[in-house]
């Protein structure tokens, strides 16, 4: 996919651009606020990585002007400011996701993949189907190959997140943010514990194949 990388720190920009190109994405770098603002308006991207603090016009202002100009491209904001108020102001300005430096590249890549515009119909879908697993969000009912599976609310939320991003990586912090609403790392294994329970319920007693892959050090992925 086409990525606009607006980041003034040459080292960070270098390693992010390198990593994204390795994954086969097309990266357009911008090192100053004015350049990023201009590129974001005249060219079309699938996602934008925007550093919050840039020379010239800062990231928040660039984002505000894009949104005012009708640019709806998903934006992931990068920042060295990890405070609660900082995150709120970034999201208020119109960011779709927020990642605090320093970050692992795998985390950034997973979040960018998740941000990429999905077909609009799936955004509001109340029925999800991946492989032989079907999830009815209204009835809060899960079936695998016709067999009903009883899940706890958290397990259901984990499954929904994985199914909505089927084929893509969901990281530990994405689970914490979207299932628990935690923007901090509680340094515990709740994600792992709940995932392991979810997996054993999905596999059932008859030992059906595990639909969830573990990518060590990166996250989890539902086989599409």
């Amino acid at each position: 996919m086409r990525v606009l990388l607006a980041e003034d720190d040459a080292e960070t920009a270098g390693f992010v651009a390198h990593g994204l190109r390795e994954l086969g994405h097309i990266v357009t770098p911008a090192a100053a606020g004015e350049d990023a603002l201009h590129l974001g308006i005249v060219e079309t991207f699938d996602v934008i990585v925007l550093d919050r603090m840039m020379p010239g016009i800062d990231g928040i202002e660039v984002l505000r002007r894009w949104r005012a100009a009708g640019v709806t491209t998903p934006v992931l904001m990068l920042t060295a400011l990890g405070g609660i108020a900082d995150r709120v102001s970034g999201l208020d300005a119109g960011a779709d996701d927020y990642l605090v430096k320093p970050f692992a590249f795998a985390e950034l890549a997973a979040r960018l993949a998740a941000l990429r515009r999905r077909p609009p119909i799936s955004e509001v879908a109340t029925r999800l189907e991946v492989g032989d697993i079907a999830l009815d969000m209204l009835k809060r009912q899960v079936r695998r190959a016709g067999r009903e599976i009883h899940l706890q609310p958290r397990e259901l939320a984990l499954l929904e997140l994985l199914m909505r991003h089927a084929g893509k990586v969901v990281t530990r912090t994405m689970f914490l943010e979207q299932v628990w609403g935690f923007h901090f790392d509680p340094q515990t294994n709740i994600v792992e514990t709940h995932l392991s329970r979810l997996r054993s319920k999905l596999k059932g007693d008859d030992g059906a194949p595990d639909p969830i892959e573990t990518l060590r050090g990166i996250g989890y992925r539902m086989r599409a």
Binding site: I190, E192, H194, R197
Partner: peptide
């Protein structure tokens, strides 16, 4: 509810 399973494990 979230932590009981992890603590039990």
């Amino acid at each position: 509810d979230s932590f009981a399973p992890a603590i039990a494990d």
